[in-house]
Each structure stands twice: as C-alpha cells, then as structure tokens.
Design a binder for these strands. Structure first.
Lengths: 186, 186
DNA sequence: CCTATTTGGCTATTGACTATAGCTAAACGG
DNA sequence: CCGTTTAGCTATAGTCAATAGCCAAATAGG
C-alpha cells in the first residue's frame, strides 16, 4: 500500500479501511504512526540489502559495482516509498534497525573491497557510492530529470564514471585541495 | 523559521503565532500551505542559484566545479529546509517556478561547458553532478554518515572523483555496457 | 472441560492541524 | 471625501493521530 500512495500519504484511516477495520483498531498492531514507519523502514532495508547482495554474487570490481548499482536503481524504482523508508536513520538504541542498516552498508563496503582502499579512503568511497546512487534515484523518482536524454543512459554513465573515479581515488592529497589537473582545460 | 523547525514541521498555527496574528489571517497572504511551500521553494531556488553562480565567477574547469560544489554544500547545510524546498519540482504551468528552476540548472550546465561535451553527453554530466551533490547533502543533513571519517574530506574526494570521471566521460559506448576496465583488478 | 488470560475488535472522544465563511476597521486612491 | 481594497478577527468544519474503556472470541494450562 505504501508504494501505491506514498510514504507521507499513508494514513491510518486509509490503512484501516483497506484492512476492513476501524481506525483505532490499528493500534492493536502498531505502536504509532512513527512506529509503523519504523517497521516499514526495517523491512525495506532488509529487502534492499538482500537485493544488493544477490546482485553482486559472482562478480567483482567494476562489474560488481555496476551490477549492484543497477539492482539498487531497479529496486528503488519498483518500490519508491519503501526505498524512501529504507533511507531513514535508525533511532539510537534500536538495535534491530541499527543491525539491518549496517548490513546494507556492509554489502557496499564488500563490493568496494576489491579496490584495496584502506581506512578513511574506503569510507570516502562508500559514502561517494551511496551519495551517487541515492542522488540519482531521488531525482529520477521525483521526476526531476526533465530533459529529453535517456535516463537509463545517464545512469550507466554515472556508474561508469564512478568506477573511473575509483581508479584514481587516492591521487589527491586531502583535505581541501581545490587546484585540480583539469583546471587548464578551459 | 522554516530552517529552524524543518519544512514539514512548519505549521500555519506556529507561523501565525510568530507573526503575532491569528491563524486564519495567514490566508490573507498565502493561498494554502502548499502555496507557501511553493513560495519558499521559488525563493530558495533563486538564492541557491545565485550562490552557485557567484562561486563559479572567475573560475573554469575543475576549479569551477570544486568551488561551486563547496558553495552548494555550504548553502545547503546553512539552510537545510530551504535546500529541501529548493529540490521540489515546479507544478506544470507555473512559469515563474519553471524559469527559476531552469536558471539553477543552467549555472551547472555553464560550469560543465568547459569540458566540451555535446548533446546528451552534457545532459548526462549535468545529471551526474546534480546527483552526486544532492546525494551527499541528503545523507549529510540527515545525519546518515555515521562512520568516524571526516565528512569534509569525503566531500572533497567525491568532488575530485567527479572531475576525474569527467576526463573520461565519453570513453564508454552507451547504453548498457557493463564490462569495464577494472573488472580484472579483484 | 473449564477458567483465566490474551488478542483484536469496537465506540466515543480529544487535540492538532488546514481551511472556509463572513464580519469589521483602517488605509488608500480617484 | 467616499468607495474599494487590505488585513485583521471569530466561529466553525473536516481530517488526522492517538487514548480510554468496553466486549467477545480464541487460546492455554491445570
């Protein structure tokens, strides 16, 4: 239901009607609306994590990144509200939510492990890949890619571009250098 | 006010109280809550667009991308709810909103113009840069970067990585090739 | 088999919120 | 200087989430 109507339009009244019960009866099954959102989020994180892990089975390096990225996008498009829910932060102390959130990140970390990045470099790469994928999916599902070019193609180039960036991931002295090799190209 | 309390927690009752008037009186100034959100969005798009344009003045290529990217992130962090509002799609036919939205994209397009990308390749690059920046900012403002590494450093590497990717932007035959040079590295 | 407890439903109601209707007084323009 | 706009007001409706308190069916244990 949440993927049909959207996460923020999932009302307890409508949910009750679909279940054929009265609205207050829902509280026999959930704690609160926030609790329902939390439950949907945990479920969604588990599903997405499983999908990503399966997509990377038997592949490594750029092929694994590409396969996982496409699986990520496909799942997010098929289940937009669940995807949105999957990006909610766990509340502190919710160990089940924290565990399933970490498991999802770990899949990405494992796929990037082929690049032998150490310590903070690996964290930077994980953050970069998550950002890249999430940003693209956010815009796509919001309908924010208004220009006429193929969205599939744009995504392919984005993922390819990320794998290219990874090949020179540790070239730059961090933090805060802003003068970069291409500055003279303009 | 919206940056203090968050976009979805901006209630007309609280806004009226801050203005020292009664809640229904607000309707003498706005059409509806949705209309208020639209007005905030248009204002925010204009502000962000101006900030990005200023950041790129006098720079080109990777230096322009880096400067603009950091300005983007700084503005988004300083005004999280306005940033969120700035990402709303215009409703069809709202010409003012459509114009200011396009103007914001155009700044990014102009900065990327130094790379001489033609047609769809340029659109792919615009989408990629928007996705990269928006994804990172989304996670950062949501507090979703839980690991201990420096977020500033991660952002610097991400932006650097994007400029690296741009140097090989048209290397790959699109769409849908998945076998990439690094596949043997693992 | 019978009883105590749990489970899952119900009505009634509260409080927060958006939104409309209709009134009034001040400001402003020809 | 009068008519119209502007900007406030009260009263009120309708939609939500959420709580309180009731009841009947299922279930588990002696």
């Amino acid at each position: 239901m949440v993927d049909e109507v959207g996460l923020h339009r999932l009302t307890l009244a409508a949910l009750a009607e679909r279940l054929g019960i009265r609205q207050p009866s829902i509280y026999k099954h959930i704690d609160s609306l926030a609790g329902l959102h939390r439950d949907i989020s945990v479920q969604a994180k588990r599903e997405l994590g499983d999908v990503l892990a399966r997509a990377a089975v038997g592949r490594s390096g750029a092929a694994a990144i590409s396969s996982m990225s496409h699986a990520y996008r496909d799942w997010a498009r098929a289940h937009p509200a669940r995807y949105e829910a999957s990006q909610r932060m766990p509340t502190a102390g919710d160990i089940e939510d924290e565990a399933v959130s970490l498991a999802g990140i770990q899949v990405i970390a494992d796929v990037l492990a082929a690049y032998d990045l150490a310590g903070d470099d690996a964290i930077d790469a994980i953050r970069a890949l998550r950002s890249t994928l999430h940003g693209f999916i956010s815009f796509e599902t919001a309908g924010s890619f208004a220009m006429s070019a193929s969205i599939d193609r744009s995504f392919g180039r984005l993922v390819h571009g990320f794998t290219v960036a990874l090949t020179q991931w540790t070239d730059q002295d961090m933090p805060d250098a802003t003068e970069l090799p291409l500055a003279d190209k303009a």
